[in-house]
Design a protein around this nucleic acid. Structure first.
Lengths: 354, 354
DNA sequence: TTGAAAGCGCTAACAG
DNA sequence: CTGTTAGCGCTTTCAA
């Protein structure tokens, strides 16, 4: 007498149809349905029709956990893990939008985490996201903890593209990671040179109060280096860590009220919010821009365009970075080739404030 | 003679250590390591020490696909799928930030997709994300396609919390979905009443040009209904679908230049960008605000606070919606109880433009 | 063109 | 306290 074929320990909790259910409904086996879904041409068209009906009758939806586990040796989840300093920051929000748009329809889902500008938190989040074996990794910038770098290398070793966005260092590092962004030191130099060309000889760079906004710091270093090369006085100060517009206001006030050295004639800022705060402070002091004071931002936010005088700034490829990343990712995944570095264009927008 | 125990078809592609590897290194079996990771107290402390060493030696990282597949009957992936109309829109970006922050450290990852304000695209994305069996679903608003609703119900049936954010309709629908947000019709009514209290008798609501921004439309309907109830003239117009500030400018121009009916004295807008555009247009026409024209926005964006006159607006719990959603989600997951609806507070900020 | 068997890495259930 | 067995749902390999 045969033993009962009903499993003694059923573990199915959910009511969702499985491949086996569809197969039973279609009178075939699971593998045929699986084939139909992935390579329809390898299934007889008659069988295909039956399967298609069974598929819609059962409302089948593939279980991607199972698929990922079974294929590519337990890896190969079709998803992209992205780590961003701050999602609320509009600059990164647009990049994430570009990334999500570029991924849409590709069968790749987006797994997102915010690091709050902390490399330690980045490492922690990276560890959590890697548990899903994402097929690609997107991180922000070139600075990471040693452990995070190690994890990124491991991911590279299993052929997952690892893309560093928002930065592009001219010297390739040959570490297998892809850079998609632009050179911040170069932008900083261009900012200083713009102010110098406009005739200003006493400059300041007001850096971000966020200690780990490395890209803002690099722009500052480029700014100071360019000024020094032209033998122009330039100081590097840091904005207080407060609401950005208010912080910009305070930073300019401190700069203007300081004694014992020549008054600053032109200031560049780590971002447009800071610069707009400074612009409002300058207005309230009755300063004429750019005659008495020139102000230069970074990011080209909507606000700066609307103020009077309109804020000169650096336009950056916020959305494009995300789109280019999605394209690079998908191409690398499709071809098996590593994604090449990609420097994206930016532009200095000289408006009324300089 | 026993057959060879080496598997004939090795399928491991990645180099990552598995539970079995750790177990071998520690001289125990896989299940003991698994127990140590999930319920350390159920493992002898001596064994635990050995396992801990093996864990760090091998650099083990759990494969969450496998974990999700094995537990909770093939469901139960510790991740939250969130569908947002637009990530680039700062209003939603902050909500996503709040959600990500609230999830941080909970062991739940965030799977994000943007619907571009389209219910069809929402359905499509929902289908894609559900393939991962997320343990909770977050969608925006109460309007969905019939198929999407069906999918949401299926998720509810397997006890995944389904949360509709940014909306809170006063009449509970009893469909098992949780609403976390506020009542937009009520906000619309409050906007009209504010303008009426300030003495205006010819009103307009400038709606969003985005056809599927249902919440903006509901505010408009509330606005018009409240005006009608007070027997005040009010018209409901739609902004052109252009860059928002420019669209607001054009919408106001159209309103002011229209002939054959009393001139609009007070306008409310679907968002602060539109309202700011209108404010700039009014300025350039030399109108005195609020004497000649009152303007009221929605959202409390930074820009409106900085203009002169400062824009009156509605402050909304952008970040809080995300945070409350994360809390509700995690509580529901922990308790097995459905998450209760949650109406969040908003406030009308009367500044200089009304 | 279709199927059987085995395995991906992990955990539930039960046994010792 | 630890191990054995079976199974999650899918795909790979090989065979028919």
């Amino acid at each position: 007498m045969p033993t009962d074929t009903v499993p003694r320990h059923p573990r199915r909790g959910h009511g969702r149809a499985t491949l086996a259910d569809v197969a039973a409904a279609a009178g075939v086996t699971a593998i045929t349905v699986s084939r139909y879904l992935r390579e329809p041409h390898r299934v007889a068209s008659e069988t295909g029709t039956t399967i298609a009906r069974a598929l819609s009758e059962t409302g089948y939806m593939p279980n991607k956990q199972a698929g990922a586990l079974a294929s590519a040796g337990g890896g190969g989840a079709r998803m992209v893990a992205a780590l961003i300093p701050s999602i609320a920051n509009s600059i990164f929000a647009e990049t994430v939008q570009g990334l999500a748009d570029g991924l849409q329809g590709s069968g790749c889902e987006l797994l997102l985490a915010s690091t709050d500008y902390s490399v330690e938190r980045e490492e922690e989040q990276l560890r959590a996201l890697l548990g899903w074996f994402p097929s690609a990794i997107v991180v922000t910038g070139r600075r990471h903890t040693a452990a995070a770098l190690e994890l990124m290398h491991q991911a590279r070793a299993r052929c997952a593209p690892v893309i560093e966005i928002w930065d592009h260092h001219p010297e390739a590092r040959g570490d297998g990671f892809t850079q998609i962004g632009f050179d911040h030191a170069q932008v900083g130099r261009a900012m200083a040179e713009h102010l110098i060309e406009r005739g200003h000889r006493t400059l300041a760079y007001v850096d971000s109060g966020v200690a780990e906004d490395f890209r803002a710091h690099e722009r500052g270093e480029g700014f100071i280096a360019a000024a020094k090369a032209r033998r122009v006085r330039a100081e590097h100060v840091t904005a207080p860590r407060a609401e950005a517009i208010e912080a910009g206001r305070q930073a300019l006030a401190a700069l203007l009220d300081a004694r014992g050295r020549p008054r600053v004639r032109a200031a560049a800022f780590a971002n447009d919010h800071l610069a707009c705060g400074a612009l409002l402070e300058a207005q309230s002091r009755g300063l004429q821009m750019p005659r008495d004071l020139a102000l230069l931002g970074f990011g080209d936010f909507a606000l700066g365009r609307q103020l009077a005088p309109a804020l000169s700034t650096v336009q950056v490829p916020r959305l494009e970075i995300g789109q280019a990343t999605a394209r690079a990712l998908l191409a690398a995944l499709a071809s098996g080739q590593p994604a090449p570095d990609h420097a994206l264009p930016w532009a200095l927008l000289a408006r009324a404030s300089t």
